[in-house]
Design a protein around this nucleic acid. Sequence first.
RNA 1: GCGGACGUGGCGAAACGGUAGACGCAACGGACUUAAAAUCCGUUGGCCGCUAAGGCCGUGGGAGUUCGAAUCUCCCCGUCCGCACCA
Length: 889
Amino acid sequence: MTTEPTKSDRYNPRVAEPRWQRKWDDAGIFATSNEELTASAGGKLPRPTYYVLEMFPYPSGRIHMGHVRNYTMGDVVARYKRARGFTVLHPMGWDAFGMPAENAAMERKVHPGAWTRQNIAAMKAQLQSMGLSLDWAREIATCDPAYYKHQQRMFLDFLKAGLVERKQSKVNWDPVDMTVLANEQVIDGRGWRSGALVEQRELTQWFFKISDYAEDLLAALDTLERWPEKVRLMQKNWIGRSEGLLARFALDPKTTPAGENELEIFTTRGDTLFGARFVAVAPDHPIAQAAAKTNKALADFIAECKRQGTAQEVIDTAEKQGFDTGIRAVHPFDPNWKLPVYVANFILMDYGTGAIFGCPAHDQRDLDFVNKYGLGNTPVVCPPGQDPATFVITDTAYDGDGTLINSRFLDGMTVPQAQEEVAKRLEKESRKGRPVAERQVNYRLRDWGISRQRYWGCPIPIIHCETCGVVPVPEQDLPVTLPDDVTFDRPGNPLDRHPTWKNVACPQCGKPARRETDTMDTFVDSSWYFARFTDPWIESAPTNRAVVDRWLPVDQYIGGIEHAILHLLYARFFTRAMKKTGHIGIDEPFAGLFTQGMVVHETYKAPDGEWVEPAEVTIESDGDTRRATLTATGAPVEIGPIEKMSKSKRNTIDPADIMGTYGADVARWFMLSDSPPERDVEWTERGVQGAWRFTQRIWRLVGEAADVAAKAPAARPAAFGEGALALRKATHGALSKVSDAIERLHFNVAVANLYEFTNAFSSSIGSQETAPTPDYAWAVREAAEILVTLIQPMMPHLAEECWAALGHTTLLATQPWPELEADLLIENTITLPVQVNGKKRADVTVARDAKNPEIETAVLGLEAVQRALEGRAPKKVIVVPGRIVNVVA
RNA sequence: GCGGACGUGGCGAAACGGUAGACGCAACGGACUUAAAAUCCGUUGGCCGCUAAGGCCGUGGGAGUUCGAAUCUCCCCGUCCGCACCA
């Protein structure tokens, strides 16, 4: 430093922050070498490792407050763990493929690659100005062929291992843009961009067989102890396991189209078989299709069902509808019992077998259906306490427990007993060499369709040959790179209409063939980046087996709750697939997961109904009411609800503006301070100013402390006076509490503890009337050094500046966490609250090691206790050691 | 419809079943200042009481378990989130 700071100086983050960033960078202290791991391979590591990772961003070009919050939390953990002696891996990269780049290309005639690279540069600069302790040497971008080359290789490995499948699947097709749309891109049945009516099309697509791992992905959720319960539950529901019976119903030949003779249905309620009233199949079930060939009305009905589409709103409001095919199914327990086979709009082809039997008394959907078509119902489960003779179902199905009735040999059984009995009997019965029914587990989880008809994604390394069929690109020909010379002036996939790119010789027969023009879902890119970070330099393989399993699993992963299902489930699957194909040795990629809340802000609406940005609004407050006006015109502005920051509501605050005005430390501090990290935090101007004031307060306090500390002896004094001891107790109390709060990721509590300590420290210094004694000066120096060390993970620049002001020439970021002197936290006398009948009446101060009888005597001698007892004799005195005393009267 | 989470001062929030409201914001009073900003000191859940001593009430509502409940259990109300015709 060129000038010694004085008390009157204000801390200027605009000057200090870039300076410290440069020093960290020059010293290379955040780069993590793999040598420590490989050198000691097999042996014990000199230091434990810790991998902290935040979900990498999409390079939109600018960071937003959500990033600031996410990356600040990760950085606190990284800096804390580093100080605690861990070798920390804390990398950053770019989720760089995806639609926005193509949209930009269409709108602004810039190449997606150029646009993305430009955005990465801009965002990287912003992240660097936050002072994050990242190892930028490991930076990766998923659009880089050096990255996606390995992804293509793994695709081929997965294919060989039987984890990839090509099959037909229904998609939302936009006929104008000639593209596939995700469900959320279909609004009211129309494409979000073109406005064209969306069609359902059958396309042949590539799938990852995630459903092969359904059971494992479900079971292993129990092992993820450091995941939020909420996320585990969401994944559990998403996987949707259900146990049931797969049963074959024979079809009455007289009523059945040629070639069909039975129908397989899936049910979880085999116990209700005697309550069956009908059988129903999905509109696209093969039997429905077969019957429709000779039945025009049925064909029309099926066409109508398909027109209804899959939009959520349609499903919500659609009435249950069916069409009697004329086919009759035979009840599995009674050859003379015939059930009508309907095609029904509420049966899903891709769950179970696409066919069910309907038991209206005990399933609401089936009941709605029979009530519409007059098929009636038979109750077969009687609720406890109901009289079977009079129990009837009219509008509300009963799906609870009870006793079986009207069910022949099942009568009197409980529901589980009946299910077991039905399964046992039908399993034993055989038709055409196969059992009539078998127990089956079904999952809601579908295979993961990864084909996207887009340019800006990882090409699927496949060649289609008329003679040889589907041929993988030979490994030595990887990567299949995207061509640069593409145009976006027309709808459709630029890869598909590129003049030459897709023309290629078949690797097997050499004849002209064509490349697969679909690219991969961008969720594939983010399903293994955490593994690539462990050695992003290795060219020969996706991962370096010498290090990948030593870094992984990620110790602490931090990101938004919006990824609770898809990203996290895909990454869990991908890790298993990588294990099967030899690229990794573990199953679960993330040992600890933390999902942070959103950043929210007030909304503002101008008189014309347009949303207005916070930056354009002036807020006035007269105590009770707040009024908003447009700064430019003075026009009144309506203050709306507090909502997630979004472009559409225009309630965003640009982190660049905040960091430009107040500095990165203030933005970081505020993002941690006001709310628990898992909850939403409201960005307010007042809150930012509070953080700003605190930085200045720390700076002044450390300045004062430095003057006192300068008089401190080098050696620790043998004894401490009263003032010094009190300060030391506060210091070590703060050290203990802040450490604990950071360990638990309760950053807001850590912040509060630091405020508290700052107050205590400040008033300790302020209360000194005479020149400081050596022991006090020493305690002040200790307090100041511990204070700045504790704020370092949160406000690293200010902390370094203070550290230097205290006379240090080292970088604080490389200093160890302070040693706690636990003795200082133990008091010789303790003050216990005293309750009478659970109500606090007094305090009692006793020796720390006082025995219960002594405490009891002291407590009963208290005037307040006697008054509260009102002359009654105490029945019992409960002493909770070190905590509380309760007198029961 | 199913599942889950949450509900504490004017606001954001703390609180291993053990003194409810730490800490911050806002507000109010005061000091410094020609004035403002900045800073510093103090007050601040409600009610009764004198600004005292002291007391009563209070963690969405109601019941329960317990010596003791914001915390555990049950019911109800409200808010938010996820899934949703999954047989």
